[in-house]
Simulated scan of single mutants.
Amino acid sequence: MSEVTAGRGFGEGPLSRASALIYTLLVVEGMFLVAAAPGLIALTLLGRDASNVPLAAACALPLGPALSAALYAVRRRSRDLTDLHPAAAFWRGYKANVRGVLKIWVPWLAGLAVIGTNLANFAAAGVPGWWAVLLVLVAVAAMLWVANALVITSLFEFRAVDVARLAAFFLMRFPKATLGNLSLLVVAAGVTMVATELAAAVLASAFAAALLWNSRPMIAEVQEEFTT
């Protein structure tokens, strides 16, 4: 037996770490679905009609705090199979961040609802076609911005205005991370269009893990430059 193997305790090997990650993602997914259930149930009852855009935004209110708690729990997961408490971490993150997240999430949802309503009624507005392209670009930029904002407000304690500024700053600061998040956005949109909103929700913990992975440079810089 090698010295490395001999010095490694139970729950510290590669297989154990992989098992710990899978277990954490499964538990966090379950907690996410519980926390987001009111909004998800309401969303499934809404038809895919243009007039329901504001209602869909209202139904999405619980998703922000739930996703933030998932980010918190996955980030603070233990890599030791013998020391896993993902459910406790999820609810600890939920309670700690719910107010801060809603300060970001609610205005973002309101803005997205306005954009969605305008696009849904674009033909009746009588405005040039390029205006629709501009609205779509603004919506995509807003989604990328809120992804950064959720990561920052879930892992750090900043005022909402500072979170907003940092989230916008890091969009251009780390273009590779932004492109990675754009890919996640495309996948989530594709899953929702092909299946249902619930299909994307079932993958929420995996998306949270991928978002954290893409955000590593941003998280490191926030820790080094903006925290003591």
Score class of each variant (00 low, 15 high):
residue 88 A to I: 07
residue 89 A to H: 08
residue 89 A to D: 15
residue 90 F to I: 06
residue 90 F to R: 01
residue 90 F to L: 06
residue 90 F to H: 04
residue 91 W to D: 02
residue 91 W to F: 14
residue 91 W to G: 09
residue 92 R to Q: 13
residue 93 G to T: 01
residue 95 K to H: 11
residue 96 A to S: 11
residue 96 A to F: 03
residue 97 N to T: 14
residue 99 R to T: 06
residue 100 G to C: 12
residue 100 G to L: 07
residue 101 V to R: 00
residue 102 L to A: 05
residue 103 K to T: 03
residue 104 I to F: 01
residue 104 I to G: 00
residue 105 W to M: 04
residue 105 W to F: 05
residue 105 W to E: 01
residue 105 W to C: 00
residue 105 W to Y: 02
residue 107 P to W: 06
residue 107 P to V: 06
residue 108 W to G: 00
residue 108 W to Y: 14
residue 108 W to Q: 04
residue 108 W to K: 02
residue 109 L to Q: 03
residue 109 L to P: 00
residue 110 A to Y: 07
residue 110 A to R: 05
residue 110 A to Q: 07
residue 111 G to M: 06
residue 112 L to Q: 12
residue 112 L to Y: 13
residue 112 L to G: 02
residue 113 A to N: 02
residue 113 A to P: 02
residue 113 A to V: 03
residue 114 V to D: 03
residue 114 V to K: 01
residue 114 V to N: 03
residue 115 I to H: 01
residue 115 I to V: 13
residue 116 G to Q: 13
residue 116 G to R: 11
residue 117 T to R: 09
residue 118 N to R: 14
residue 119 L to W: 09
residue 120 A to L: 11
residue 120 A to C: 12
residue 122 F to Y: 13
residue 122 F to T: 11
residue 122 F to V: 11
residue 122 F to A: 13
residue 124 A to C: 09
residue 125 A to Y: 15
residue 125 A to H: 10
residue 125 A to L: 14
residue 126 G to N: 04
residue 127 V to Y: 14
residue 127 V to D: 04
residue 128 P to Y: 05
residue 129 G to K: 12
residue 130 W to T: 07
residue 132 A to Q: 09
residue 132 A to G: 08
residue 132 A to L: 10
